[in-house]
Amino acid sequence: METKVIENGDGAEIVINGRLDTKTSKEAEAVFSEAGNKYDSVSLNMADVSYVSSAGIRAIRNLYMILYRKSGKLSVKNVGENVMEVFEMTGLSGLLNIE
C-alpha cells in the first residue's frame, strides 16, 4: 500500500494505491491523521484500491471523525465495486460524500 498526499488550496487529496487491510491500515491511519489535522478538506482517491477490510474502515472512520469534529469535509472518489460493497455494509456510504 502506498499513499501520496497532493495539496489543493485549503485541502488535500490522498491517492491510495493497494490494499487497506490489517497489515497496511496502521500506516494509512498515520497518513490520514496527519492530513486530517493539517487540512479542513480531504479527498480520498481510491481508484487503485481493490480491497478494504474492517481495519481499513476503521482508518477511514478515524479520518472522518477528525474532520467532523472541526466541521471539515471528507469526500471519497473513484470507489470500485468491491470496496463500495464494504462501504455499504458498514454504513459508511451514507455518511461520506462519494463522488
Binding site: 472512520r61 472522518y64 471523525m65 455499504e88 455494509m89 458498514t90 454504513g91 459508511l92 451514507g94 455518511l95
Partner: peptide, 10 residues
C-alpha cells in the same frame, strides 16, 4: 447486532 445506518460508524 451491527446497524448500517451510519450510527454505528459514528
Amino acid at each position: 447486532e451491527a446497524d448500517t445506518s451510519g450510527k454505528m460508524f459514528m
